[in-house]
């Protein structure tokens, strides 16, 4: 092999992937951004028309619902999953003999497709034959649990399902964090006679701040990208009651044939993701490069 080729080899090997990322990530984002500024309908058009699609988007009640849902769903999901995950991690950190088995059980939903999760919960929560019917069958005739078909409550069923799926993962993250706290600090605190709950609240948990941050990032990211779960669980319904930006975008792109709206909503989604992820990635990369 000629000398110069040998020297350039690393760059040559990396080049295809790099070009692919440039084109298929950044180029495509640019394309979507461009189309979001046009009056494209079924076919893309490339004459820039300004922010018409965005003003249309923000005037749309359906998009409004989708964004509201994202906030409600995202906040509830993140808070409950973090609290539950932390609680479970602390409980599991008490020298539990069957820890391995319990961890396996808590975490397995994360291996499932959101479609499977949605299908399962759709069946469990369906009022006709599911949980509601079962509890009524036990003799509680007035028991009602119809969130799945109740437009005001349906979004909470999505929260229930996603928490079931991902809280075990948050637990695993926090458990790893708890285990990484310096044992000598805890010994010192024990020697000082500090009670266990105070050791957790004053020493262990504050030192896990980075883990809270990454858990938050992962969950927020998951929430914004949520698409499959809604499709499988509620299909966005009843009506548009459980629409999320992701389902809105999909509907515009593939059933309504409104590329301009699809592109604009995708761009808004990306900006929301970047607002969350970019500061985090930036600090991570900076810390790594030092």
């Amino acid at each position: 092999m000629p000398e110069w080729l040998e020297k350039q080899l690393p760059k040559l090997v990396l080049a295809p992937s790099f070009i692919a990322v440039l084109v298929f990530v950044y180029g495509f984002i640019a394309w979507t951004g461009w189309v979001s500024l046009t009056r494209s309908r079924l076919m893309p058009r490339y004459e820039i028309e300004g922010l018409v699609q965005y003003s249309k988007l923000f005037a749309s009640p359906r998009w409004d619902t989708a964004m509201n849902n994202l906030v409600v769903f995202g906040l509830l999901f993140i808070i409950i999953a973090m609290v539950l995950g932390l609680l479970l991690a602390i409980l599991l950190d008490q020298q539990i003999r069957t820890e391995g088995a319990i961890r396996t059980i808590y975490l397995y939903p994360m291996a499932l497709s959101m479609i499977v999760t949605g299908t399962a919960w759709k069946w469990i929560l369906n009022p006709g034959l599911g949980l509601e019917a079962t509890v009524r069958g036990w003799g509680f005739e007035d028991f009602t649990f119809d969130w799945l078909v109740n437009p005001d409550m349906a979004i909470y069923t999505v929260v229930i399902a996603i928490i079931w799926q991902s809280s075990g993962f948050v637990m695993a993250l926090f458990l790893a964090g708890l285990r990484s706290v310096d044992g000598e600090i805890i010994k010192a605190a024990q020697v000082d006679g500090i009670p266990t709950w105070r050791i957790y609240s004053a020493i262990v948990i504050p030192s896990m701040a980075p883990i809270f941050l990454s858990a938050f990032i992962v969950l927020a990211h998951l929430a914004i990208k949520s698409f499959d779960l809604v499709i499988a669980l509620t299909g966005g319904g009843p009506g548009y009651a459980t629409d999320l930006p992701a389902t809105y975008m999909y509907a515009m792109a593939f059933s309504r044939g409104d590329l301009g709206q699809a592109a604009a909503s995708a761009m808004v989604m990306m900006m929301v993701v970047f607002a969350v992820v970019v500061p985090y990635l930036y600090s991570e990369l900076r810390a790594k490069n030092d």
Binding site: F28, P44, A246, A253, A262, A266, M267, M269, V277, L285
Partner: peptide, 19 residues
């Protein structure tokens, strides 16, 4: 870094041009 950012984009933003 550029590749890493690519992991985090919502795929909706590449759906149309990819199609």
């Amino acid at each position: 870094s550029l590749m890493l950012f690519g992991c985090f984009i919502p795929f909706q933003v590449v759906l149309l041009p990819m199609a």
